[in-house]
């Protein structure tokens, strides 16, 4: 072996070798057939660290083709450093077209958010997942949690949520809020805020979840029932923001809190930067056609 072999030229389309892709593809098909079940797969070391999206990157690399248009977001934004890094990785290794527009993308890789604009048929949303096991913080052992899923024994999860209610008056889980998929598997939606949970239900797009370090892939096919766990007397509810986005005026969207100065000045604006920019673009063109100056 010579060191020259280590150059990028020696790597395959979308980085992964074909055997690895086949292994991941087989896992993805099983995941689609068993919605919410975590399929073990022989995750590879990727050229970015574990915990930084290696699961999502492996899934994306296995599904993407030259015709695809890729969008990568982190915390809702296309411009955060890790989103930039992953987008560049695919530009370099797969030569695919990339976009920031949700509507134009065929594959969207995300960390911690679901876009505000409704997803369409034919799109695939790929989630980066740190801890795929929703029961992990209640039971650290894989041997035990596997049994619990097998027996559909989810009492522990309900007990935990109910303890929250007893102590705080409401469920204190605000992100990675557990869901039940198609009435069978309890699933971790990845650390998206629970605000995004309702978007997963009956979604037109295919949702794939990749956990690289934990070596699991799972999926929600399009038009599949995804229900956030709750209780009759304490129904699931999403957080509401009191004010609209300070930039585009959108309501009913997830907002980031920006600290403006050291005197307590702050503003709230869209976490989904593309959604916000498109709305502002529309507003500008409307005002422009009205001959107004913005």
């Amino acid at each position: 072996m010579t060191l020259q072999d280590t150059g990028l030229a020696a790597y395959n389309f979308a980085y992964l070798d074909e055997q690895t892709k086949r292994m991941i593809r087989r896992a993805i098909l099983k995941a689609i057939a068993i919605p919410g079940y975590q399929v073990p797969f022989a995750s590879r070391e990727m050229p970015m660290p574990y915990g930084w999206g290696t699961g999502g990157v492996q899934v994306t690399a296995s599904i993407i083709g030259p015709e695809d248009v890729l969008k990568v977001i982190d915390q809702g934004s296309d411009d955060t450093t890790n989103a930039v890094s992953i987008r560049k990785f695919f530009e370099k290794t797969a030569g695919v077209e990339t976009t920031t527009r949700t509507g134009e993308a065929t594959v969207i890789q995300t960390r911690h958010r679901i876009p505000e604009a409704p997803l369409k048929e034919g799109q695939v949303l790929v989630y980066q997942v740190p801890i795929p096991e929703p029961l992990r913080f209640l039971e650290p052992r894989e041997t035990e949690t596997r049994k619990m899923h097998a027996l559909e024994e989810y009492g522990l999860m309900h007990v935990k949520l109910y303890e929250d209610i007893a102590r705080n008056g409401h469920i204190a889980t605000t992100y990675a809020y557990p869901v039940k998929v198609e009435g069978r598997y309890v699933m971790d939606p990845s650390p998206t805020p629970k605000f995004d949970n309702p978007k997963m239900d009956n979604c037109a797009a295919l949702q794939l979840f990749g956990a690289g370090r934990e070596k699991r892939i799972y999926a929600i096919p399009p038009y599949t029932s995804v229900v956030s766990l709750d209780f009759e007397d304490h129904p699931f509810e999403v957080n509401r923001f009191e004010q609209p986005c300070a930039l585009c005026g959108a309501e009913g969207v997830y907002l980031d809190e920006m600290i403006l100065d050291d005197k307590g000045g702050r503003m709230f604006c869209c976490s989904d930067t593309d959604f916000c920019e498109e709305r502002r673009g529309e507003a500008e063109s409307v005002s422009a056609s009205n001959g107004e100056i913005v």
Partner: peptide, 18 residues
């Protein structure tokens, strides 16, 4: 090291929820 160091990545969306 990957998972420990990933805490450096932005988490402001989850933090906002908290």
């Amino acid at each position: 090291t990957g998972f420990v160091e990933h805490l450096k990545l932005p988490h402001y969306v989850d933090f906002q929820a908290e």
